[in-house]
Structure formats: C-alpha cells, structure tokens
Write a protein that binds this DNA or RNA. Structure first.
Length: 213
DNA sequence: TTCCAGGCAATAC
DNA sequence: GTATTGCATGGA
C-alpha cells in the first residue's frame, strides 16, 4: 500500500498557528513522512477533538467543525467547558450527531484537564463517556505518540474479506493480529492505519461494495 | 432520492 | 451476553 499510495502524513492538522485556519486540511494539514507531530499542546488537543468528531463521519465535515471551533475560540479545554449554552453545538454542527458530540467534547475536556499533561492510558481513555476503542487508540497513537494499533471499520472489513483470521473477528482480535504482523514502531502504526483508510476510500471510489457487503 | 462516512452508548431481546 | 437502534450533517 505504501508503494502504491505513498506516505499519508496523518493525523491532518489545521494550520491555525497563523490566524486563519485553512478549510482544506489537504493543503497544509497532512505531513507525509513526518511522524514528529503534535508539536504543540494545542495541536495535541486538536487531534483529540478530531478523533471524537470523526466518529462515523466524513473528515471533510469534521474539518469544517474544527475551523468553526477555532473561530469561536473553542478548540481548547477550558473554553469548551465554559462555552455558552448551545455555542459548542453550533460550532460543530457540520460534523453530525452534534448534540452527542458536544457532550463527548465536554467529557473529554474535563478528562484532559484532569490529566495535567500526563499521557493517558488506554483504559483511562475508555472510561471517558463517548470514547470507545478506536477513538482511544487514535488519541494515543496520533495525539500522544504511543505505539498503539488503531483498528477501524475498513481494516476490520479488509481482514475479514481476505480471511486473514477466522471469525468472529472483533476489534480486539483484529488489533492483536495486526500487532503480531507489523513492526512495532510509531511510524509503521500510523502509516498502516492511514493507508488502510486510503485503500478503502479508493476501493469505494472504484465501485467496491461498502459496509453492507 | 438513497446511501454512507476514519463509532459509541443506550436499549431490546 | 449479543443484536439492534438512535444519533445528524453533507457529499456522491
């Protein structure tokens, strides 16, 4: 996949070091071959929020929500907790499930502050309302640079279809399988997950059946 | 118009 | 304990 698609440069980040956040993460947000992100605490928090907002949602919709959060001054834990009634919901409307996700962002902001800058363990993340296995692993892998395998719906589907392991293949089994068959480095884990998503997107564009099949 | 996206929690059986 | 349902917008 790497040879076919090239390095993906995940996790995409907004360019809000400058004053105007870019709308398309594609321009400045991806950073192929550079696994040193996040560079700032603000970027770390942005990745966490993106991981929550992208749950069952196209990334383009999430990008718009992130830009709105920056505009509203809400892409930061304390402002999220202090936001006026409905302000958070309005900012993230484009990401879908906006009421549920606003609640999730508040729950995470509280947890994040409680961490006091420490790297959260997987179990701790899973205990936060609104954070399940994929979101927890994404946050650890991309926001905290931990070598944590991320499995998504695409990866699960591909493993099943190619018969890599026998059913029932749930999240944890798929995770263990991938861990056993990949070099345990941050770069490999990040690249693998991003490439699986890219692979699935291309298959879909080429007319492959979706999740129903 | 219908389908579906980088899931998760609540509810039903 | 496993299966289903609700959450919601925007693009193809």
């Amino acid at each position: 996949m790497l040879e076919a698609y090239g390095p993906q440069g995940w996790w995409p980040l907004l360019d809000h070091a400058g004053r105007n956040p870019t709308l398309t993460g594609r321009l400045t947000g991806y950073h192929p071959g550079d696994f040193t992100f996040p560079h700032t605490e603000s970027q770390r928090f942005e990745i966490c929020c993106g991981a929550i907002l992208t749950q069952n949602t196209a990334w383009t919709n999430v990008e718009k929500a992130l830009v709105e959060l920056v505009r509203a001054g809400l892409l930061s834990p304390r402002p999220i907790l202090g936001a006026a009634e409905g302000a958070l919901e309005t900012a993230i409307r484009s990401s879908g499930y906006f009421r549920a996700k606003a609640k999730k962002l508040r729950a995470f902001a509280e947890f994040y502050l409680g961490q006091g800058g420490r790297t959260p363990g997987r179990e701790a993340l899973l205990s936060v309302w609104g954070i399940g296995p994929e979101t927890a692993d994404s946050i650890r892998l991309y926001a905290y640079g931990q070598v944590e395998m991320v499995i998504d719906a695409y990866t699960l589907r591909v493993l099943r279809r190619h018969g890599f392991c026998r059913p029932p293949l749930d999240y944890d089994r798929a995770k263990r399988y991938c861990e056993q068959h990949l070099p345990r480095t941050l770069a490999d884990y990040q690249e693998f997950h991003a490439l699986m998503v890219e692979h699935a997107k291309r298959l879909r564009a080429a007319g492959a059946p979706g999740r129903a099949a």
